[in-house]
Design a protein around this nucleic acid. Structure first.
Lengths: 331, 331
DNA sequence: TTGAAAGCGCTAACAT
DNA sequence: ATGTTAGCGCTTTCAA
């Protein structure tokens, strides 16, 4: 039984070359003959050799590592991580993931990344205070994704939540709705912007007097509870803070004997997996995930490489996804 | 402006001690006076020093790192990763995550972990062939989670899918159902076991002649399609391969004018977030996530530390979660 | 309790 | 094209 894993020295010895030469081969750097290259690679495969990334990075000074903090429970973060991998790969950087869970907070996740010598941090749905993140940014580039962070030292890539609700309201008004209610997200990041987007769009359509915002929250229960208060005099359309809340809205409406979209139209927000279920078939607002991840990685690398960048906050327009929960109002 | 991040040498110099002593303090190892400890820690905080985990691990030989391969898009993997973090923390090991995405395959994910010098691999829902994993296991302990892998070199922690369907059928029979249909998962891992569990349980209740397995799959569409074939002569209860398929079943039933659970009872499998939505309120079979993750980490560490282990496959009993989609059959 | 020195596995600079 | 040497930042002897 072998005690350790093979090192570059093992490979070099067995191939009858110096470690430096073996290193050149493993790195696919120029400066080795085809024959040597072949032999070294063969021995490496035979020995099951994998370069030690820690030694490699330790020596070469740079890690070309992008640290990503994400909520492993957030379905949407999964989509974002997928996009980040693609964007990073194209630019020859690698990702190191650090999860936030119920018992592992963002600080812990960040510290672990710092010890991994990442060259920049991409934080999905940052929860730390702006001050904390700004302090961090003094030592390493920090890019927040999804939540607005107003600070001159922080880069942010986020969805245009205001526009999202403009699109939702425009769609509904286009269908003929005038009595449109917004169910709020409370103090959840993004809620204020969505609320404002709703109000602005309503005014733009001359529906100032119809503006009606109900207190709500991000969960299905929040959506259902808010809807309960609506049943006495139901509107013809409801914009929910997010898809999950929208499911609560749908549930409450149907339990009350109202049909969707026959009696009431409903729009969610996020285009989560949930919305795509044929079972729900929810009209919703989709964030441009690919664009956001590409920009986040690009921005992180710009910072690392000292590229001068003008705008610190990148706001990405979402788009409307029409499915089965919106239609013209009953007449 | 400083060019790099502070090293242990920087901290040591500034605190007026040797790096060896500073190292002792940073590692919380015994052998430094309280005064020294305080001073070093203070300087470290002041400098924003974070130990370089690469150098640290390189030198100390061991990494105490557990590599975790997971599907970043799989909601359930999120639950598992959360559990793994907790289990590892308790045992003083750390986790390194490597995601599988549409464009990043399991092999890539594993190789990256190998280069990180993890001491064991925990693979959630392994997709590689048993042969491939067995070859890997010759070099590093491999623990598969969730999917059965029959090989003497591989450790596996998985849910008892057979028992899961026993529980489902027992529950339905207890409610008075006799006409119970199972919608199959096709070639998805676990489908064969669930099918067998259904058949066994039906026979155990003397319902041999009522055994009816419909071809299906893991998606909502699969569930809906299978249900369509049932509408001419609907059973009083349906066990679906998983929660997602169950949503398709519910949708198809309700569209056909049948009520759940009034006319037909439905049981899912997984207790995913989906099932817990008040909107769905799906009776389902829950895997014991905490138990599985604890055992997976324990088993990985047993292998690393050479503890002798008898059983290579650990099969964890799931439990029934009764919600709103099951009731007594119509009379 | 503290310090000096060696070296983990690798890459980079310089030789040949 | 290939080899030699030094050293990344840390931990680990070993000695003081």
């Amino acid at each position: 039984m072998r005690t350790g894993r093979p090192t570059l020295a093992d490979v070099a010895a067995r191939a009858g070359v110096s470690t430096a030469l073996a290193s050149i081969v493993m790195r696919e750097a120029p400066g080795a003959s085809a024959a040597t290259r072949r032999r070294v690679l063969e021995v490496a495969a035979q020995l099951g050799y994998h370069p030690d990334s820690r030694a490699r990075l330790l020596r070469s000074g740079r890690s070309r590592l992008l640290g990503v903090v994400f909520g492993v429970q957030h379905a949407y973060h999964g989509d974002l991580v997928t996009g980040l991998y693609e964007a990073a790969e194209d630019l020859k950087y690698e990702l190191t993931l650090s999860a936030v869970t119920d018992r592992r907070d963002e600080r812990t996740a960040i510290n672990s990344l710092l010890s991994d010598r990442c060259e920049a941090l991409i934080i999905l749905g940052p929860q730390s205070s702006t001050a904390e993140l700004a302090a961090l940014a003094a030592r390493i580039p920090v890019v927040g994704v999804g939540r607005g962070l107003r600070h001159h030292a922080l880069d942010v890539v986020r969805n245009d939540d205001v526009l999202g609700l403009h699109l939702a309201v425009d769609h509904l008004v286009g269908l003929g709705h005038r009595r449109i209610v917004h169910i709020d997200g409370g103090r959840i990041p993004g809620a204020a912007e969505r609320r404002r987007g709703y109000q602005e769009a309503m005014r733009r359509h001359g529906l100032d007097t119809g503006v009606r915002v109900l207190p709500g929250g991000p969960t299905g229960e929040d959506g259902a509870a808010a809807t309960a208060g609506l049943l006495a005099d139901p509107p013809t359309a409801i914009t929910a803070f997010n898809d999950l809340a929208a499911t609560g809205v749908l549930d409450a409406l149907r339990r009350a004997g109202l049909t969707v979209p026959g009696d009431v139209s409903v729009i969610g927000f996020d285009d989560s997996r949930l919305a795509r279920l044929t079972y729900l078939d929810l009209t919703t607002i989709a964030q441009d995930t690919a664009e956001m991840t590409t920009l986040a990685v690009g921005r992180a690398i710009d910072r690392i490489e000292g590229t001068v960048v003008s705008r610190r906050e990148l706001v990405i327009p979402p788009h409307l996804v029409v499915r089965g929960t919106t239609a013209s109002p009953p007449r």
